[in-house]
């Protein structure tokens, strides 16, 4: 039984124009919100496949500040 932990990060949705914050050090996601990136979706899918192959579990973990 394989239990898989997938660590993902919330990233700005890039369906709209990509805006930078005032200090130009980060992406400003105010207008587009955050989402799971396509690559990390792949990671989740892989984890599910691996875990379900032998009755294990896949757990997704994401961390963020309160702000």
């Amino acid at each position: 039984m394989t239990n898989v932990l997938v660590c993902i990060k919330r990233v700005p949705d890039t369906l709209g124009e990509v805006l930078l914050t005032a200090d130009e050090q980060a992406v400003d996601a105010r207008f587009v919100g955050c989402t799971v990136s396509a690559h990390e979706n792949c990671a989740v899918e892989l984890a599910v496949r691996v875990a379900s192959a032998d009755g294990g579990t896949a757990t997704v973990l994401s961390l963020r500040s309160d702000a």
Partner: peptide, 16 residues
């Protein structure tokens, strides 16, 4: 309010 280009859906449909 974001411009049309900046908005993912529309300028008045902001992230949930």
């Amino acid at each position: 309010i974001p411009s049309i280009e900046q908005a993912r859906l529309s300028p008045t449909e902001l992230p949930f």
